[in-house]
């Protein structure tokens, strides 16, 4: 069942028109006041998952901490959830508010273990959940090269076609997006590559474990790098795109940095909801 087989019937026409403006690379194109930020379509900002406080060398302290005032764990959605003051439509750790969806996009109870997509009630984004079967289109460990033939948004370098290791599609980001849309994941055909901000929105920085994400809602997340849609804006670096790391580092690390489009990374697709 396709809920939105025709892009023009979607309720997100304003956002779509705004995207089209950007696709046309018109600096003077204004977005409507009801439209959202830049290329992203997030309705609101997620909190970080950090519902505790720290001092010079300790984490998981009760908030507030004397001499370390006004830090992340002192305010926001995570603090409200910790204090029992946050209303959610769905469920999720700390301040996160997610709903599990089945393959047709129907809501499932939070206790479901075989869900296909996740709706984020704060950002309004719908996310792909990766699969465990190595022969599946959306297997968690498939890798893809970065490729986007659209010269209006690829930063001037389309990247590399079919460079990765995967199944049921060519192994680049463009081919994977097309294959998932052809399959009608969760009833939709407007899946796309996420931005740094969008991947950042589901990173859970409050946990210790293999990966910095709510694994109940996002199982099969690998401790590796995920591609974003965004090319490096540095002159001469058009052959690089932003990647996002969900692993929890041994010592110190970057979560968002730039790497060659020929590199092989994971992909998690996203779409806007009205």
């Amino acid at each position: 069942m396709f809920r939105s087989p025709n892009l023009f019937t979607m309720n997100s026409q304003v956002g779509y028109a705004g995207l089209a403006c950007l696709l046309l690379a018109i600096a003077g194109c204004s977005s409507s006041s009801s439209s959202s930020s830049g290329d992203s379509g997030m309705l609101g900002l997620n909190d970080t998952g950090v519902d505790w406080c720290g001092d010079d060398d300790a984490n998981n302290l009760s908030c507030p901490v004397t001499s370390f005032p006004g830090q992340d764990g002192d305010s926001g959605r995570d603090a409200a959830a910790r204090d029992g003051d946050l209303d959610k439509l769905g469920e999720g750790d700390a301040g996160f508010d997610f709903i599990k969806l089945d393959g047709d996009g129907e809501h499932l109870p939070a206790s479901a273990t075989d869900h296909t997509c996740v709706l984020d009630n704060v950002t309004g984004l719908m996310w792909e959940v990766k699969q465990t079967g190595t022969g599946d289109l959306r297997y968690a460990d498939h890798s893809y090269s970065w490729y986007n033939p659209d010269a209006d948004v690829n930063g001037g370098d389309a990247g590399i076609e079919d460079g990765g290791f995967c199944a049921l599609s060519d192994c680049d980001t463009h081919a994977f997006v097309n294959a998932v849309n052809a399959a009608g994941l969760c009833g939709y055909d407007d899946w796309r590559m996420p931005t740094v901000s969008e991947l950042n929105s589901i990173m859970h920085r409050g946990v210790t474990g293999d990966v910095a994400i709510d694994t109940d809602f996002f199982p099969n997340t690998v401790a590796d790098y995920y591609w974003t849609s965004q090319t490096s804006a540095q002159d001469g670096n058009e052959d690089r795109a932003w990647q996002f790391d969900f692993s929890i580092p041994e010592f110190s690390a970057s979560t968002a940095w730039r790497t060659g489009k020929n590199q092989l990374k994971q992909v998690r697709l996203v779409r806007n909801t009205p």
Partner: peptide, 15 residues
Amino acid sequence: ECDNAAVPATTPGSD
């Protein structure tokens, strides 16, 4: 203005 016009702006002035 963008340094690379083919990279979509994330924080346009209109925001």
